[in-house]
Design a binder for these strands. Structure first.
Lengths: 253, 253
DNA sequence: CGGAAAGTTGAGTGGGATCAAGCCGCGTGG
DNA sequence: CCACGCGGCTTGATCCCACTCAACTTTCCG
């Protein structure tokens, strides 16, 4: 069970104790603040596949942590075209992109049965001012989303993007305690294709090629990773680790 | 002159008073906190074209506000390919993507003479806990970067991306008090092409086409926007504003 | 003035989109 | 039970946009 702030579930009750992902608060926590945080959490009824968690243009009030299920976020441009901007899984936060202008810039829809914890953002920010760990966690979360979105916009070649997607899924499944070798996709081919900026036909052919090359084995929504290393090599996802990067900060060209 | 937190320059001195962009703190400010904020600001010597502000892999210590000049950020993947991830201008913050893992995921290089204010992040975050406006500003800044990076990863067609780039530049020039109709590019064609995920040749041809269609007039690095409306229409940049978006939050499929 | 880098132009190629058809799983209803 | 229809997915054929390669021009800077 994913608890919103990575704390072990509160002793004595099975309910979510705190909304920010495993290993968030490694040190000691002031019990008072923690209880305050718990008090902010709004438990919502499960959302079923196809239901919207928020819509593009909605006023922003809450951020939310996914506890169970998969959420797809997508934007619709003024031509009416849909663009999937992300798949979100347990432990992920959604809604962070709406803080700035107070309106959600995208739709969030449940792909399967989703339960989440909602946190009124204003109150959470107020609490963060008194709870350094919480503030730091929020900064890190948002920073990670910036870096992730930036990486996504790079990966140019189709096969690299697909490889990055598969590796990313594998790692996220592992983070949830599932097998990183074999798992079940919760999204359709069309969703994946759209997310990777590919035509569904192209994705289908790519998957077939990956399978022929022994990288993966795909049957419907069942995926098995066979060539993790080669797949990871294909995904130029991770930026190159630069050796001796701590040298001179500034130098003339 | 851009002051880091949008305050008018401190009376009596021309130096930067506060590092977060125009209109940041609309309400009253506690003078004590403000002075503390000013105390955190590190004034650095101007960086000249080609010099690095930070490098991929560098330890993250500071965020920085650009006061003058243009900064290019780019990542290098493990194939050695360069990918420009953004152009940053006065008032913009750089370094926010590094908070999460404590290392910069990209290089930042000055395209012309750049002056910036550096803020030790740890201390700034501590102060933010006592200065709600500052904390809110940081959240908004990061949120905006998430939304921006997400939008960038969409815009698929080459001409749409170029149009979005031009409109974005025009608006940012206007925000700095320059003409939004006619201005000077600070980055090379190669940089722009790389940013837009195009070959330099393709960009050259596209610009020529835009010029033939009367959208812009380009001469070297001098740009004049002639068809703002058509350009804006081409750039599917802004997501469609959804009417009556405040309806039911959740609905079954 | 000369060399190098940046930018433009032209010709040819290829990767991914598009168009079109077929397959398959599934629910519905006769 | 099967016929039917629908949507998701795959396969094939063709097309086109953007990339590549190559040559040339311009600009920059010594």
């Amino acid at each position: 069970m994913v608890t919103p702030f990575g704390l072990p579930p509160a002793r004595g009750r099975e309910c979510c104790s705190c909304p920010l992902g495993p290993g968030c608060f490694p040190g000691s926590l002031e019990a008072v603040n923690l209880r305050e945080l718990e008090g902010l959490i709004e438990h919502t009824a499960p959302a079923y596949a196809g239901s919207f968690l928020f819509r593009q243009g909605d006023r922003f009030e809450h951020i939310a942590v996914i506890r169970l299920g998969t959420v797809k976020t997508y934007a619709i441009d003024r031509e009416g075209r849909e663009q999937t901007t992300g798949f979100h899984m347990p432990g992920d936060f959604i809604g962070l992109s709406a803080i700035d202008d107070g309106r959600h810039p995208c739709n969030a829809v449940a792909l399967d049965t989703v339960t989440l914890c909602r946190l009124p953002f204003r109150a959470t920010a107020d609490l963060a001012a008194r709870m350094p760990m919480l503030q730091a966690k929020l900064f890190r979360l948002m920073s990670r989303d910036i870096a992730r979105a930036t990486r996504l916009s790079c990966n140019n070649a189709a096969d690299e993007r697909l490889a990055a997607f598969l590796i990313g899924m594998a790692d996220r499944m592992a983070a949830q305690g599932y097998s990183s070798r074999r798992w079940q996709l919760t999204m359709s081919r069309m969703d994946i294709a759209n997310y990777l900026r590919l035509a569904p036909e192209t994705l289908s052919r790519l998957l077939r090629r990956f399978q022929a090359e022994g990288l993966v084995s795909v049957d419907g929504r069942e995926v098995e990773v066979r060539g993790r290393e080669r797949l990871q090599a294909l995904a130029a996802l991770e930026p190159a680790r630069v050796a001796c990067a701590d040298q001179a900060r500034s130098e003339a060209a």
